[in-house]
Amino acid sequence: MVTLTHYLALSAILFGIGAVGFLVRRNALIVFMCVELMLNAAGLAFVAASRYRGLLEGQLTVFFVLTVAAAEVAVGLALMVAIFRTKKTTNVDELSSLRG
């Protein structure tokens, strides 16, 4: 029997993977994909909870999340392109001139 707990556990695992990915990857694009993974983990939780409770709000929320994520991609990619033009790299570790 697959319960809500299982779904939530899965989404938590996904969230965790995304978070760890954020920390270990250097390519800005991949780092960003990890964030997307985290967002989608949350989406999964919403859908599962929505289904479990028989409410529509959760499913609706996922639309919001997806839309926001899409907008985020638009902003993020634009930024990365701009940086790549200036710095010729997308390695986040090389972007550390501001510190202290």
């Binding site: 978070a19 954020f22 250097r26 986040v92 570790d93 550390s96 001139s97 501001l98 510190r99 202290g100």
Partner: peptide, 14 residues
Amino acid sequence: WSSGYVRQYGLSVL
């Protein structure tokens, strides 16, 4: 602590 590395900042958050 403020090393300039994004990933480290993320680590702090995590």
